[in-house]
């Protein structure tokens, strides 16, 4: 039972990671580790920048 639960949880984490659903949480963690003196961006501002950054280069193929 526990293994099934763990496997499902891992799958869920993978899906969140792949889709970028957890991007803000990862950013906050990164921020806390590397720039602890400055406050992190709000979820909304971060997401705006993240989305605009993502679409700067070649993202999709034929």
């Amino acid at each position: 039972m526990n293994t099934v639960k763990r496997a499902l949880k891992r799958l869920w984490c993978t899906i969140r990671r792949l889709s970028g659903d957890d991007a803000y949480e990862r950013y906050v963690a990164h921020h806390a580790a590397h720039h602890p003196d400055a406050p992190p961006l709000s979820r909304e501002t971060f997401f705006k920048q993240w989305q605009d950054d993502k679409w700067k280069g070649v993202k999709r193929c034929c």
């Binding site: 899906i15 889709s19 659903d21 991007a23 979820r43 909304e44 971060f46 997401f47 993240w50 989305q51």
Partner: peptide, 14 residues
């Protein structure tokens, strides 16, 4: 939805 209603909730929106 992703931008204004629930910012960054990619999976919900999808």
């Amino acid at each position: 939805y992703m931008r204004s209603i629930r910012p960054g909730r990619v999976l919900e929106a999808s």
